[in-house]
């Protein structure tokens, strides 16, 4: 008996060592990953809140309750409220076109959608300064007609839209391509109009991926610094978004307020991650499959 047991466990060990690394290597790798993340991600994250609360709760709350901070928060929300729906709309339209139709220039469109990810955000801002700035191509004409784009809200919105174009489209294109056209064709042969087909067949099939894309798009729209910094002009209470406001406060050695506002953005990031995790789970295990089984089983047991 004993001998059988010992050979059995030996075989197991032997097999184990064939398929995975030795325990020492495994522990080292896991520890390295944890240490790295703690040092570079968790400690800085913690530092934001520690610094923000250094002056006590009153000072923390006070950091938000002044006109400049409120204006910055409002501006950030406004910019996101314009940029995110626009990019969601564009993302769905572009993904639809790319996945469901064949046309010349399809590859160019896919590449163009990815461009904002490849370009430095500062360049993205500069593009608009070159286009609409006082010395830019359209600058003199805009000046004559008294239209302000650079150093004003439209410029900030434009730069944000540019930077956040890819998020929804990139999420949807592979999904819609893998889903194919058959369900839509079936809907049309059953008499559905184009809009009915979109609303009742396409949209339900893509809703979780769409939401996922919107969450990422929103996080980037609210957190964008580089591109917005170039076009904003940093006018307090007027063209400062939250990330810009943090920078100004910090440059003025107002560390508590800077970190307090930064903590808001950090909270946004945490909420985004949580929402992302939930939506990801929805995408990978659709409730529509799990629920009815439970329903059927409950029904039959009764």
């Amino acid at each position: 008996m004993e001998s059988i047991n010992s050979t059995g466990s030996k075989e197991l060990q032997w097999k184990d060592s064939l398929t995975t690394e030795s325990p020492l290597v495994r522990r080292l790798l896991i520890a390295a990953a944890f240490l790295y993340l703690t040092f570079f991600l968790f400690v800085p994250l913690l530092a934001v809140f520690v610094e923000a609360l250094k002056g006590g709760l009153a000072a923390y709350v006070g950091s938000f309750l002044n006109d400049d901070a409120i204006a910055a928060i409002q501006l950030t929300l406004l910019v996101a409220a314009v940029a995110v729906p626009l990019n969601a709309l564009f993302g769905v339209a572009a993904a639809w076109a790319i996945a469901k139709f064949d046309f010349a220039g399809k590859q160019i469109l896919i590449t163009l959608i990815d461009m904002p990810l490849a370009v430095s955000p500062v360049i993205s801002g500069l593009i608009y300064v070159l286009l609409f700035g006082a010395q830019g191509w359209l600058g003199p004409w805009l000046l004559e007609n008294d239209i302000k784009i650079i150093f004003a809200l439209p410029g900030i919105v434009l730069a944000t839209i540019f930077v956040t174009v890819p998020f929804v489209a990139r999420e949807l294109i592979p999904l819609m391509q893998s889903q194919g056209r058959e369900e839509e064709e079936a809907a049309i042969t059953l008499g559905a109009s184009g809009w009915q087909t979109f609303r009742r067949v396409t949209l339900p099939n893509i809703k979780w991926s769409l939401l996922y894309g919107v969450i990422l798009c929103n996080a980037r729209a609210m957190g964008e610094f580089g591109a917005v910094s170039v076009v904003s002009g940093h006018i307090r209470g007027l063209t400062n978004t939250m990330p810009l406001h943090v920078e100004i406060l910090y440059n003025e050695y107002n560390a508590v307020s800077a970190f307090a506002v930064a903590s808001l953005l950090t909270l946004l990031a945490i909420v985004t991650l949580a929402a992302k995790a939930i939506v990801e789970r929805k995408i990978h295990s659709p409730a529509i499959v799990a629920d009815p089984i439970a329903g059927v089983q409950a029904g039959s047991s009764r």
Binding site: E183, E185, G191, A192, R200, P204
Partner: peptide, 30 residues
């Protein structure tokens, strides 16, 4: 949608997010 033609696809093309009953009812509800 004006031809009144029923089409059955090789890979079924059922609406995956709808129940069997909703699938069958689709043509009537649109």
């Amino acid at each position: 949608n004006e031809r009144r033609v029923g089409f059955v696809f090789q890979h079924y093309a059922l609406f995956r997010h709808m129940s069997v009953a909703d699938n069958v009812a689709f043509g009537l509800t649109v």
